Amino acid sequence: MFKANSFVSVLVHLTIMAAIVAALIFGFFYLYLPSATNHGETISVPKITGMQLGDAEQLLEEQSLRYFINDSTYRSDQKPFEILTQDPAPGAKVKEDRKIYISVNMKNPPMIKMPKLIDGSVKNAELILKSYDLKKGKITYVPDLQQNAVLKQFVGGKEVAPGALVPKGAVVDLHVGDGLGNTEFEVPSVVGMPVDEASVLLAGQGLQVGNIFYDASSTEPTGTVVKQRPFAEVGAKIRVGELVDLWVAGDEQLQGIE
């Protein structure tokens, strides 16, 4: 048996031991570990966004990859269980058995509280609906003095009160005031009256003065209403909020009346 009875023999022993250790290290890091972890072998992540979950699952299995759903949301313009996002992105290089994180479109929309659109304008209603992920549907104008004001809100043909639960993405139909109202009455006659008094009378009956035309050739006193439209004929009707055009005697510049 070899005996370590000299300096040379000790040195030989140390050299042999160092060689064994180096061989073990080399074998572990450069032979065993690469083969066990498929060192240098990567997989290109396929594009699965836009695919159905079942199809994507099969594709990932074929690529030796896995998936994990870390988010779900609802988009009415996309199919249920459609993959919306993925991480890592398509084309990324990953190791075998890597987990791909995905978000999926829900089958059923979540329920949200219906916002209050009533008494606001149509434009304001559109902004609110968009912020709630709801869609503006049909607008129906109905007789009411509140012009362009939302009077009622409907989902699926049924009136919905603010705070009631509706599906996210639902279509909301609106009933909006036409600014005229539905009360009809006989057209008042203001011919022969001073234009300022005629304006007060019309306003008092819920009517509006429309265009004012001046007739310098009229023989009536300056500022007198000589004609109106619509005419105050027997049986002529008008609704609250409608316009009445006036013809006034005199020259506009001399009167200074706008």
Rank of each mutant, 00 (worst) to 15 (best):
G50E: 12
F28R: 02
Y30T: 03
Y67Q: 03
N38W: 02
L60H: 04
G50P: 15
L53P: 06
N38Q: 14
L60K: 09
S35A: 05
S35I: 09
E62H: 05
S64L: 13
E41I: 15
T37A: 03
R66F: 02
I43E: 04
Q63M: 12
L31S: 05
R66N: 11
H39Q: 09
S64G: 08
R66E: 12
Y32M: 08
E61S: 11
F29T: 13
Q63W: 07
F26D: 00
K47L: 10
E62C: 00
A56W: 06
I48N: 01
A56K: 07
S44H: 03
R66P: 01
D55W: 00
L31I: 15
L24H: 00
I48A: 01
Q58R: 11
T42R: 10
P34G: 09
L59G: 08
A23F: 14
D55G: 13
D55I: 03
Y30W: 14
Y30I: 04
K47C: 01
T37D: 04
F26V: 05
G54Y: 07
Q58C: 00
L24N: 00
Q58I: 09
T42M: 13
M51R: 04
D55P: 06
A36D: 02
L33S: 02
L53C: 04
L65Q: 01
L31H: 09
Y67T: 06
L24E: 00
Q52F: 06
L60A: 10
G40A: 12
L59K: 08
F28C: 02
D55S: 08
T49S: 12
G54P: 02
Q63I: 04
T42A: 05
S64T: 12
L33A: 06
Y32F: 15
